[in-house]
Write a protein that binds this DNA or RNA. Structure first.
Length: 492
RNA sequence: GCACCGGUGGCGAAGUGGCUAACGCGCAGGUCUGCAAAACCUGUAUACGCGGGUUCGACCCCCGCCCGGUGCUCCA
């Protein structure tokens, strides 16, 4: 099944297939590790995750590279303020970022590339640009890209720069540039700042050059897909194209994917608005990692997503329905055989969900057939018409769905536990939601003992004592479920 | 200002030039239960921003307007 994916460069849906017939080579812009990742960051990484998982599921191999920007103005500023090296400053944030990805079940790319470990590659590229007449050095030792050397500039973001006059907005500290829109390739060292001594002088890389250098290092001069948040389209990606193609004269990336920004409570997320959330903030409030994942992927990546707590609750409940159903299939007893209607329903659900994803990763549409199948199967179970062969067929559809969505398999306890641990270390115990504390306040054994006592009380028809125990547990976030097979309990 | 995206039932969110406009959440009723909860089933609201136009026929195409959002070299 071929993925039809919107291509910013062509402005239409294009087939996404490996140009070499082997693996799809993709580069996705990663984080600048100067702070903890927020949900907006993760929406983008989750969208790319859905893409790669769909490709893998449908039999396309993937070679996925993601950069870690571990040197830039903010990092230098913050590290200097803290009196430590930039490496010492960024390391914990990089680690936190990778932990957050794991919590959200974002698959790790085949290759992570740190900017600071690829300085020679960047220098080499700048030298080539200089040789081609597309780069020049200013008096202070910085290097700039000469926009005039790349007539196609603007082809990605569809900007027509011809009408823009030079000199209209010249920053005071950039007076040396030939043209106001020329952008920095290499920034000359300033006293006290981190810098590298190289053939093009002492300094540090500009922001854009790292992606060009590292993408070419791992994927070649021309590759299949480049992805990132919509904000990166201009100028970052436009600049990457200019830098790369001025040297190689080949198409840098054939396909460009941009993920729409999200809103929080209907407004742009920002610290000053007070609607800025990191993943850790949400975990500490008691929301499950799976719910956050579901909420962030349920709206197709090109649509604006309005992130709300109501939305998280909805996602939580929707996942619960799927998990309960899955358990019902796995634990029930079903007679041998197959029900043709259910076999057909399973087949249709599988086909429909994949078809929806293949259409520009329409995750919202992809959910529908799965829920249709859940209802049909539940009805059949109630009527005794679901057979063992149907159970197997339906479980395999759920497994396939989970290869992409990955929300049914429950591994929510670990990220929450880690977040609490982190909060304690970071002196943020106060941010841990009380119900999370309650959930962990009783051991499994203690709960089992209370449940047993309640069962005994019920048998003796001492319902007031039984209800009392149930209420006490409920206050601590322990939910009891009576069934004919005994009592089940779970932490809310 | 220029450019782009969106406005679908209580909420979220698909989709289509004409058949009953998905799905999820919520809500209501039922089954079950000592009662609940949970789970499941059923039902639910006669939803396509406004005004024109094209068409045999538009929520879907075109024009205008209103509203919301975003971008225009910090930003996933």
């Amino acid at each position: 099944m071929t993925l039809r994916l919107f291509n910013t460069l062509s402005g239409q849906l294009d087939d996404l297939v490996p140009s070499d017939g082997k693996a799809l080579r993709m580069y996705a812009c990663g984080p600048t590790v100067y702070d903890f990742g927020h949900i907006g960051n993760f929406r983008t990484f989750l969208a790319v995750d859905i893409l790669r998982r769909f490709l893998l599921l449908t039999g396309t191999k993937v070679r996925h590279v993601m950069n870690i920007t571990d040197v830039d103005d903010k990092i230098i500023r913050n590290a200097t303020a803290a009196g430590i090296s930039i490496g010492a400053y960024t390391a914990p944030f990089e680690l936190a970022f990778l932990e957050d990805l794991e919590a959200l079940k974002v698959q790790r790319p085949e290759q992570l590339a740190r900017a600071t470990e690829h300085i020679p590659k960047m220098v080499e590229l700048i030298q080539k640009l200089a040789a081609a007449g597309a780069a020049y050095q200013t008096e202070d030792g910085s290097w700039y890209f000469r926009l005039a050397a790349f007539p196609e500039y603007g082809k990605l973001s569809k900007k027509d720069l011809s009408g823009m006059e030079d000199g209209a907005r010249v920053d005071v500290d950039e007076y040396e540039k030939d043209s106001a829109r020329d952008f920095a390739l290499w920034k000359a060292a300033k006293p006290g700042e981190t810098s590298w001594d190289t053939a093009i002088g002492r300094g540090r890389p500009g922001w854009h050059i790292e992606c060009s250098a590292m993408a070419m290092e791992y994927l070649g001069e021309s590759f299949d897909l480049h992805a990132g948040g919509e904000d990166l389209m201009f100028p970052h990606h436009e600049n990457e194209i200019a830098q790369s193609e001025s040297v190689t004269h080949k198409t840098f990336a054939r396909h460009w994917m941009h993920v729409r920004f999200l809103l929080v409570d209907g407004r742009k997320m920002s610290k000053s608005e007070g609607n800025f959330y990191t993943l850790r903030d949400l975990l500490l409030k008691g929301y499950k990692a799976s719910a956050i994942r579901m909420a962030l992927i349920s709206v197709p990546y090109r649509h604006q997503l309005n992130f709300t707590f109501d939305g998280l609750i909805e996602a939580t409940n929707a996942i619960e329905r799927l998990r309960t159903f899955s358990q019902r299939l796995k634990t029930g007893n079903y007679a041998p055989g197959e029900n043709p209607a259910l076999q057909e329903a399973a087949k249709k659900a599988q086909a429909d969900y994949l078809a929806a994803l293949s259409n520009d990763l329409n995750t919202a549409e992809a959910r529908a057939p799965i829920f249709d199948l859940v209802r049909a199967a539940n009805t059949a179970i109630d009527q005794g018409q679901l057979l063992a062969g149907d159970r197997d067929a339906i479980l395999s559809v759920l497994a396939s769905f989970d290869k992409v969505f990955d929300v049914i398999q429950d591994s929510d306890a670990e990220p929450t536990r880690k977040a609490i641990e982190w909060a304690v270390q970071a002196g943020r115990e106060a941010d841990v939601a009380p119900e999370l504390v309650g959930r962990e306040s009783l051991t499994d054994e203690a709960i089992d003992a209370l449940v047993a006592e309640r069962t005994l009380a019920k048998r003796q028809r001492n319902f007031s004592r039984a209800d009392q125990i149930r209420n006490e547990l409920a206050e601590k976030g322990i939910i009891l479920e009576d069934s004919k097979d005994g009592v089940r309990w779970k932490r809310k």
